[in-house]
């Protein structure tokens, strides 16, 4: 008998399992929005500092993801969508996830402070706290408004990126925050509509579970309508411009069209085509957010190349 036979029956966690604890897919959205917040800010940053700042913001988001997986291991085990995550599938222990989450939180905040400034580091720390404590531990299991308020955590990254570059908060960064904040409910509820059984099995009080699907559809419609003016107003700030304006008009109109389609659907129609419209809206919502922020990047590039039209009104 060799030493190895002793450990043969227990799974040995691999590098990829720990990487999966950081929720890489959520992280891509964080990297992108934080990068846009940093790049469109009026203060230029040396490449290596900008790169490090975005990396450590992403790491902080990953850390809060690991903390979330530690705390939610019991419900992740029940929901089909999350069963294969490292903790519920038994590849990484919940305790390891917690330790990794805490240490990466400390590391990412400290390093962001050193790479950019301490205000940005404070914002990142607050974001991690908001996601891990306010959303995961408190709101998620206690109120159907969980993802509305918890959505703030996902909306902070562009503000943190902006803070890393400028050291402060401005109307532009608040508006970028507001866009993601208003976007999250229709985005997440579209998912909840076709994943409802998951949430009710796990006892998570999603709007679809507590107030029913027709009510959720109406709420999605309101948020989508409120999102449009916020997205449009950014056109007339220092980070906006005609290209962004056109993108915002088109994308908002399409998102409203999707929401309208989802709003009017009866439950049996939705079940009949296995939530085709809801799935489409969910997929489009990702494209919508990605499109708006890409348009902001294009405007930043235009300004850098001095191609921005001077006639474009900047109201705020």
């Amino acid at each position: 008998m060799t030493d190895a036979t002793v450990t043969q029956n227990t799974y040995d966690a691999e590098f990829g399992d720990y990487y999966a604890l950081l929720k890489p897919r959520v992280m891509t959205l964080v990297v992108f929005t934080a990068a846009v917040g940093l790049i469109v800010a009026p203060v230029p940053m040396p490449f290596i500092l900008a790169f490090s700042s975005i990396l450590f913001i992403a790491l902080g988001a990953g850390a809060s993801g690991a903390l979330n997986m530690w705390w939610d291991a019991d419900i992740d085990e029940i929901m089909k969508r999350t069963q294969s995550r490292p903790v519920p599938s038994g590849r990484v222990s919940a305790n390891s996830a917690m330790i990794m989450g805490l240490w990466l939180s400390v590391l990412s905040v400290a390093m962001l402070g050193l790479a950019s400034n301490w205000f940005a580091a404070f914002c990142l720390a607050f974001t991690i706290f908001f996601y891990a404590v306010v959303y995961s531990m408190w709101l998620k299991r206690s109120t159907p408004q969980n993802i509305v308020i918890g959505g703030a955590a996902g909306a902070f990254p562009p503000m943190v990126g902006w803070a890393a570059a400028t050291g402060g908060v401005a109307i532009e960064s608040v508006l970028m925050f507001a866009v993601i904040f208003m976007w999250t409910p229709p985005h997440f509820w579209a998912l909840a509509l076709f994943m409802n059984e998951d949430y009710s099995d796990a006892g998570v009080p999603m709007m679809t579970v507590t107030h029913g699907k027709p009510h959720t559809r109406r709420q999605m419609w309101y948020y989508t309508l409120l999102l449009a003016p916020i997205a449009l107003v950014i056109s007339f700030t220092s980070i906006g411009g005609p290209i962004y304006f056109v993108a915002a008009v088109v994308l908002s109109a399409m998102f409203i069209k999707h929401a309208w389609g989802v709003l009017g659907r009866a439950e049996d129609t939705a079940i009949a085509d296995s939530y085709a419209a809801e799935r489409k809206m969910f997929r489009f919502s990702l494209l919508h957010l990605f499109g708006l922020f890409t348009a902001l990047l294009v405007e930043a590039a235009m300004r850098a190349l001095e191609l921005s039209p001077t006639y474009w009104p900047v109201w705020i």
């Binding site: 040396p46 290596i48 500092l49 490090s52 990396l55 050193l114």
Partner: peptide, 13 residues
Amino acid sequence: ALVFGITIAKMTA
């Protein structure tokens, strides 16, 4: 490498 890079960037500035 990243910490080294950050140090160089900060000192250069």
